[in-house]
């Protein structure tokens, strides 16, 4: 028997992704972003979240997906992992679901263009919905970023 998880569901393009609810602090509408020069390309800048300065990254950019326009649906999900607070810009976020860990299967090599190591697994929900569970620690890992940067150079 697996555990019941509460998962925040958000969208990037047509895919649906999930983050455990405990790791999410808040979900915000788009806020004015101040650009930070000379940093990773996918870092959009910093925002003021009730007096705290938080960096925001474009999750599409992080996964090398084609960038999209920001719309009314665009949201910033503020997550806290390893004492780091970071905002993710996503296309939309409008669902919280219960998920049994038993239903999460290990991911195939590449899902929607994202490497498997950034994923915790893939869960089938409903008849034809697939939920991709993100591995936040891996997504925010700095050594990972440095490698990525050096490839870009």
């Amino acid at each position: 028997m697996g555990e019941e998880l509460k998962v925040i569901v958000f969208k990037l393009g047509n895919e649906e992704y999930g983050i455990e609810v405990e790791k999410v602090q808040t979900i915000e509408r788009m806020l004015p972003i101040t650009r930070v020069p000379k940093t990773y390309t996918f870092v959009r800048g910093v925002i003021n979240l009730r007096g705290v300065v938080i960096p925001v990254i474009d999750l599409r950019g992080r996964f090398n997906l084609p960038e999209g326009e920001y719309t009314d649906q665009t949201r910033i999900i503020i997550v806290a992992v390893n004492e780091m607070e970071v905002g993710f810009i996503v296309d939309s976020a409008n669902d919280v679901i219960d998920l049994n860990t038993d239903r999460i299967e290990s991911p195939p090599e590449v899902v929607g263009g994202i490497k498997a190591k950034y994923l915790d697994g893939v869960a089938k929900i409903g008849d034809d919905r697939l939920l991709i569970m993100l591995n936040l620690a891996e997504v925010l890992k700095k050594s990972e970023i440095i490698q990525l940067e050096s490839i870009e150079d």
């Binding site: 930070v36 000379k38 938080i54 960096p55 780091m84 970071v86």
Partner: peptide
Amino acid sequence: SLGKYLPQVKGISGA
């Protein structure tokens, strides 16, 4: 501070 996630940016000391 700019938070822990961002690396030190040369020329910027904070926000």
